[in-house]
Structures are given as C-alpha cells and as structure tokens.
Amino acid sequence: MVKTFIVGFDGTDACQRAMDFAVACAKHQSATLHLVHVLEWSPYKFMSHDEMRERHERKKQEVASAEKFIEPVVEKMRSAGIEITSEVRYGNPTEIICEIAKKKPDSQIFVGRKGASKLTKLLVGSVGMSLIQSSPVPVTIVP
C-alpha cells in the first residue's frame, strides 16, 4: 500500500515549511505527495448583484491563477524524483482536506502553522486546530 501525504498548500512560508517536511518524510517512507490548494468558499456568504453576475468568470480566473502558481512547485518536485499530484478545490479548507483524506487509504495530513497571535486564534481559529479535531487520519502540524 502506497502512503499518501496530503499537504495543504497556499503558497505561504508556513506551507512551504510543511511541504519541505513532508518531502523529507516522503523520501524516507517512499510515499507520494498530494498538494491541495483550497480556495475559501462558502455557499452561504452573501453576494452583491455584481459579484453574482461576475462569479462564473471570476471562478475560472481564480482556478487558473491557482493552477499557475501550484504548477511550478509540482514540476520542481517531479524533476527531483518525487511522485506528486495536486488539486485545486473550493470550500472550507478543513472540510475539504478531511474529505480528501477519507478517500485516500493510508494517508497523512501535513499543514503549516502561521503562528498567529492569541487574539486572532481565538476569533478565527486556525485550519490546523480544526483539522486536529476532525481529521480521520494523523495530522502533522509544522511550525
């Protein structure tokens, strides 16, 4: 059974660190990497008329630009001899990552931590924290 390491990736430094760590682990355990880029999206958020009209085009642009920045990373990894796949999804980051983890047998999750202040943590709650609480598979938080 091939292990899959799911890496939450949004291009920040923290994610880069999580990625590096996952790569290091993957080399030891001969696992494949799966990059997940989640675009924040809630079907219950209020939209203005203009936003509604532009939504479809905007979605296309968003997906395109997300793929544009994820593609070079994937290419680099691949040329370094690591098996890697990627996907761009819309929704709540925690839910999406958990959903993917459920579908992949024997997977693990790697996410970065932004090191936010106490107040923001209290108000926003980090993806890492909620993943720890709801993930069906082991989660590694990389500081």
Binding site: L39, W41, P43, Y44, K45, F46, M47, S48, H49, M52, R55, H56, K59, E62, V63, R89, Y90, G91
Partner: peptide
Amino acid sequence: RGRYSKPGDAGEVSHFQALTTALSG
C-alpha cells in the same frame, strides 16, 4: 439548503446566494 448541489458546483453562485441576492433586491 444545498441538498442537490454537486461538488463541482462549489465556487459558483449557490442557490442560497441566488435567493438572498434576489431577495435583497
């Protein structure tokens, strides 16, 4: 309530949003 929305619809205008936007008008 999104009971018929396919996963691929995420990112597009949802029924809920269409309703609330129309209602705001």
